[in-house]
Nucleic acid binder design. Sequence first.
DNA 1: AACCTGACTTCGG
DNA 2: TCCGAAGCCAGGT
Length: 106
Amino acid sequence: MRTFSQEIIEIIREIPAGKVCSYGAIAARAGNPRAARQVVRVLRACSETEGLPWWRVVNARGTISLKPGQGFEEQRDRLRAEGVMFDAAGRIDLAEHRWQPDWMEE
DNA sequence: AACCTGACTTCGG
DNA sequence: TCCGAAGCCAGGT
């Protein structure tokens, strides 16, 4: 069977350039809306080896969770390179860049 | 089978 | 809107 983590990996692979998705939304699509932290584990464990577009994953507020000097700059630059804009507070306009906003409709 | 880990999320003040 | 505390979870040890 496919593990929850494997589902997460596949979902992240589907995020198109210029779009972003939150940890929670990915977890929700993988089957458990409360397993956002598991998405973090997956990224830490295999964003490199699996060649995932890890920079397209941000937190629910539309900001980068990585800390300066710890990957923040790289993620910001990679997103900018795909046309994602940040406001003065460092927030991404989710209304425009969130991937498949219809997922979470209830 | 507990215990630990986190790049999270939600809620209350 | 911002901040801290408290939830929450799957996989590795």
